[in-house]
Amino acid sequence: MSEWERSSTARVVAPARPRRLAKVPFVELADGRLQGVVSSGSDIARVYVSSVVAGSYAFACSTNNNRPCGGARGAYCNHIRALISEAVLQFGPERVARYLKAETGGDEGPSAQSIAHAMSSTRPPQGDAAAAAPVFSRFLRHLSYLELAPVTTPLPEMQWFPPTRAVA
């Protein structure tokens, strides 16, 4: 076994990179999708739930009240493009491209633009809007972490989770 395989504190997931959250407060690579929540540019109380499926690049975008996004008919809307850009900022372009199985080609590494182009140029199908509800509830759960009380009893388990300065 390699040293990494024999390490109790091997780093498996790089921590999120800092980014501005105003436009896209939540983005994740989960359930085989890039998915997240994009704030509406016009209505402060409205958010869009957007997603792209890894491999098929099928996309979906609707409001938190389940109204379809007007921009996401037949092609990626601006919410989905913003989601891809912010995912690249938070997780790094390599991890996003790898997760989505986006073939960006070329000698240079992937970028938000090349990932979006690689996927949209395959004329991806409209995806299932049913994913929106679970994504939105994951976002709410994510927000609720800020409301949970800190404790001063020790958590010895955190010894297995050292910080890392390495970026994604």
Partner: peptide, 9 residues
Amino acid sequence: SVSAPKPDS
């Protein structure tokens, strides 16, 4: 020690 749950961002 002091610890808290947090959003990943």
